[in-house]
Design a protein around this nucleic acid. Structure first.
Length: 564
RNA sequence: UGGGGGAUCGUCUAGCGGUAGGACUACGGACUCUGACUCCGUCUGCCGAGGUUCGAAUCCUCGUCCCCCAGCCA
């Protein structure tokens, strides 16, 4: 309590809430809601809204409802409601009072619509969709009244009842609010309140053949649930007038207020359900939970933690100006989190054979490796070393450029937690000329990785013992799009044209430190010097290990090398 | 051209008449058995023009640019 009072509001919505609290509005109650339509999977943009709404409830000791905005049976499915629940839970939030559904309010909504008709505030229109569009006017020209606008209350009541009874085909009639066909706000030109849709609803089945529209449903659902602050995104600013109009006509016990904030945009990805569903349907990704997808399920499978997502949502802030957040911030928050908690392991993704010529054949020994230098409590483990090893192909260069510290002919480097080795000979495939093996010598005095004579090496390489290593597949993921803003208009092109052809690189000949054989699906690791990885929650098993790269480590060398 | 919103470092964001601050990025350095982490340092910003004021990102005026709205989607 003292905590929330002493902290300065961190965004304009908190400022509003604190003002409301100060003036005693809503009896000091704060009630928010997260209202997804179950017509797709949640993405990182929704995470912003979830963190905001649930976070506000936590901060001000209020409540936050989960409410499915399920008023369009032709687009909604239970698969989506289940996925949404799972995602909200995974993010770390518990909704108040069980899941709510707008469809739970269909009866009440219907009664309220009848009341509007009785009050002469709504009428059944029998114009076709096309005609309604024509009658609406344009941005600069007023619309004109429908010829059905002045039907009697009795006739409207009768027609609406018969709409409900299923006497008419889809599109034959609609219920409209009677507001003002010349209103400068297009949404106020007699908006549609109900339409006929002879479709089964995922919860109400075929009990209904008329369904309420968003603008009628949302505000009343908020009022029914006694929401105090109804927070939505900027594109609903125009809808606020209608939100208020509906609530003003129907005296509800609670009077919620709508506030709008800018939705999240992220570089190198797209965050619109329409586009994400297209990626899935066209098979550009393996599914909603493809680790390249910005969906919560994709991000989760990629190895992101809920904590890192919440931190991200805090850092991006909440404001009213549209913006595009740099993907680098998201990557920073996951690195920050994983650095603290991910056990370190050694994994060689593109193996290059190394023979330690002066190490006895058939011998092996265990060396002690630190599990996490950031957390001593995570302890140590034993890693086997032997005469034949694998190192990363990119850690050897026959003709190294200036600042390249790694292995090269005649050069000495350290094998992490093991020994100093020196490259004495390079063996190439006689046909291709490709380097296929390195012959090296090791210095037995450097066991553990320190030279008693104090000599230094510039590089430390990760490695695995050939006979002890376990095979595995590693999926290297990169940004889904090549352009920071795939939606940016370019002649004749769509966002599909900017998909990154290299967003997935499957490496199936990787050699992993033995301990990784025990990796449980979803387990997170840092593969030293490479990045953070997680065992794929769907595909990884003891028999076939599959790891997903969550994010690379920051890489100073890549920058140096890349700049030339 | 109607109505509704919005403009602060490269990016996101604070500021509420009194020295423009933070985070990310970038760059430089220190440290290092991960070219990681950590630490230190540097660069860059109030959309423009007027006005009010001792003093303006903040108040006023006039512009400019950007976003949203013409679904029986949400």
């Amino acid at each position: 309590m003292a905590d929330t009072e002493s902290k300065a509001p961190s965004n304009f919505i908190q400022t509003i809430i604190e003002e409301d609290l100060k003036t005693g509005k809503n009896d000091g109650r704060v009630a928010t809601r997260f209202p997804p339509e179950p017509n797709g999977y949640l993405h990182i943009g929704h995470a912003k809204s979830i963190c905001l709404n649930f976070g506000l409830a936590q901060t001000y000791n209020g409540t936050c409802n989960l409410r499915f905005d399920d008023t369009n049976p032709t687009k909604e499915e239970v698969e989506y409601v289940d996925a949404i629940k799972e995602d909200v839970h995974w993010l770390g939030f518990e909704w108040h009072d069980g899941a709510h559904y707008a469809s739970d309010y269909f009866d009440r909504l219907y009664d309220l619509a009848v009341r509007l008709i009785k009050d002469g505030k709504a009428y059944v229109d029998s114009l076709s969709a096309d005609e309604i569009r024509q009658y609406r006017g344009t941005l600069t020209e007023p619309g004109k009244d429908s010829p059905y606008r002045n039907r009697s209350v009795e006739e409207n009541l009768d027609l609406f009842q018969r709409m409900r009874n299923g006497e008419f085909e889809d599109g034959r009639h609609v219920l409209r609010a009677k507001i003002d066909m010349a209103h400068p706000n297009m949404l106020m030109r007699d908006p549609t309140l109900y339409r006929i849709r002879k479709a089964a609803h995922h919860r109400t089945g075929d009990r209904w053949c008329i369904y309420p529209m968003y603008d009628f449903t949302h505000c009343l659902s908020d009022a029914i649930e006694c929401i105090t602050h109804s927070i939505c995104t900027l594109e609903f600013e125009n809808n606020r007038a209608l939100y208020d109009w509906v609530l003003d006509q129907l005296a509800m016990p609670c009077r919620p207020r709508q506030y709008e904030f800018a939705r999240l945009n992220l570089t190198y990805t797209v965050l619109s359900k329409r586009k994400l569903i297209q990626l899935v349907q066209e098979g550009r990704v393996s599914g909603w939970d493809d680790p390249r997808m910005p969906t919560i399920s994709g991000i989760r499978r990629r190895g992101y933690t809920p904590e890192s997502i919440r931190t991200f949502c805090e850092r991006i802030g909440v404001a009213k100006a549209n913006s595009i957040v740099d993907m680098a911030l998201l990557e920073h928050t996951i690195r920050e989190d994983l650095n603290r908690r991910a056990p370190r392991m050694m994994a060689v993704l593109r193996p290059l054979k190394v023979t330690i010529e002066n190490y006895p054949e058939g011998q092996a020994e265990m060396l002690t490796a630190v599990n996490n230098p950031e957390d001593a409590a995570m302890g140590t483990r034993q890693v086997p070393f032997s005469r034949t090893l694998y190192i990363e192909r990119e850690d050897f260069l026959e003709d190294p450029p200036k600042k390249y510290f790694r292995l090269a002919p005649g050069r000495e480097v350290r094998l992490r937690y093991a020994y100093f080795i020196t490259c004495t000979q390079v063996i190439k495939d006689p046909h291709s000329g490709e380097v296929i093996e390195l012959r090296c010598t090791y210095d037995p005095a450097t066991r553990g990785g320190d030279a008693p004579d104090g000599r230094k090496v510039k590089a430390t390489l990760h490695w695995v013992s050939a006979e002890h290593a376990v095979p595995g597949q590693v999926n290297l993921y990169d940004r889904l799009f090549v352009k920071p803003d795939p939606d940016e208009r370019e002649e004749g092109k769509t966002f599909i044209d900017f998909l990154n052809p290299d967003s997935l690189d499957v490496l199936d000949d990787c050699r992993l430190e033995p301990e990784l054989a025990e990796a449980k699906p979803g387990a997170i690791y840092q593969f030293e010097r490479l990045g953070y990885f997680c065992a794929d929650s769907k595909l990884s098993s003891r028999d076939h290990l599959v790891f997903n790269r969550t994010v690379t480590l920051r890489d100073a060398w890549a920058k140096i090398a890349g700049n030339k």
